[in-house]
Amino acid sequence: MNYSGNLTVINVMEPIVADVLEEHYVRAGILKCTCDRCKLDILLLTLNHLPSRYTSSQEGEAYIKALYMNPQHQSDVLREITESVKIIENKPNH
């Protein structure tokens, strides 16, 4: 597909998952290991189990983030993060 080099593609799930991980696990002190490698592995594993939400505009990003204010969507993200935390803590990549 041809597109202008000025356009960027954003998977809005990245900042959503990163924010939830930070708020519910890192700041809360729940993680066994808080090294960057483990946090990144948790983020990536979670993103692989959630649907991607791509956009190329700030308006689209705001719209998708607003959708994820729904309690069910927040619960889905938190559930996937919890599963990823269990997996990474049982077998860390370091």
Rank of each mutant, 00 (worst) to 15 (best):
89 E>V: 12
67 L>P: 04
32 K>A: 12
79 R>Q: 15
81 I>Q: 02
14 E>S: 00
89 E>D: 11
23 E>W: 08
28 A>K: 10
33 C>Q: 06
86 K>V: 15
65 K>D: 06
35 C>M: 06
20 V>L: 06
18 A>M: 11
26 V>H: 04
50 L>Q: 08
32 K>P: 02
7 L>M: 05
39 K>I: 03
59 E>K: 09
17 V>K: 09
67 L>D: 14
68 Y>F: 00
80 E>N: 11
86 K>F: 15
75 S>D: 13
73 H>L: 14
17 V>M: 00
11 N>G: 00
69 M>W: 11
28 A>S: 15
14 E>G: 00
86 K>W: 13
60 G>V: 09
20 V>F: 07
72 Q>M: 12
46 T>W: 01
26 V>N: 04
26 V>S: 02
17 V>D: 03
11 N>F: 06
94 H>R: 11
79 R>G: 02
66 A>M: 12
6 N>F: 11
29 G>P: 04
11 N>L: 01
74 Q>S: 01
18 A>S: 10
21 L>I: 04
83 E>W: 10
57 S>A: 03
14 E>A: 08
67 L>E: 15
46 T>R: 06
10 I>R: 14
28 A>L: 04
68 Y>T: 09
72 Q>C: 05
54 Y>M: 11
25 Y>C: 03
22 E>G: 01
22 E>S: 02
46 T>P: 01
62 A>Y: 14
57 S>V: 04
40 L>D: 00
18 A>N: 02
75 S>F: 09
77 V>R: 10
43 L>F: 05
15 P>V: 11
36 D>T: 14
17 V>R: 03
49 H>K: 06
23 E>C: 00
81 I>C: 04
30 I>F: 13
80 E>L: 13
52 S>R: 09
72 Q>L: 09
65 K>G: 03
80 E>S: 05
8 T>P: 01
32 K>G: 05
71 P>D: 06
69 M>Q: 15
18 A>Y: 09
64 I>K: 06
27 R>L: 14
57 S>D: 02
19 D>G: 00
77 V>Y: 13
89 E>C: 11
58 Q>F: 02
84 S>G: 13
65 K>M: 15
74 Q>D: 05
80 E>C: 08
53 R>Y: 03
42 I>S: 01
88 I>T: 07
72 Q>V: 13
40 L>T: 07
68 Y>V: 06
54 Y>P: 02
69 M>Y: 11
1 M>E: 09
41 D>C: 01
76 D>R: 06
80 E>Q: 15
10 I>N: 13
82 T>P: 01
32 K>I: 04
36 D>H: 11
42 I>E: 01
64 I>H: 05
92 P>S: 14
73 H>G: 03
81 I>N: 12
32 K>H: 13
86 K>C: 15
79 R>F: 07
28 A>T: 09
30 I>D: 08
89 E>H: 07
54 Y>Q: 07
18 A>F: 00
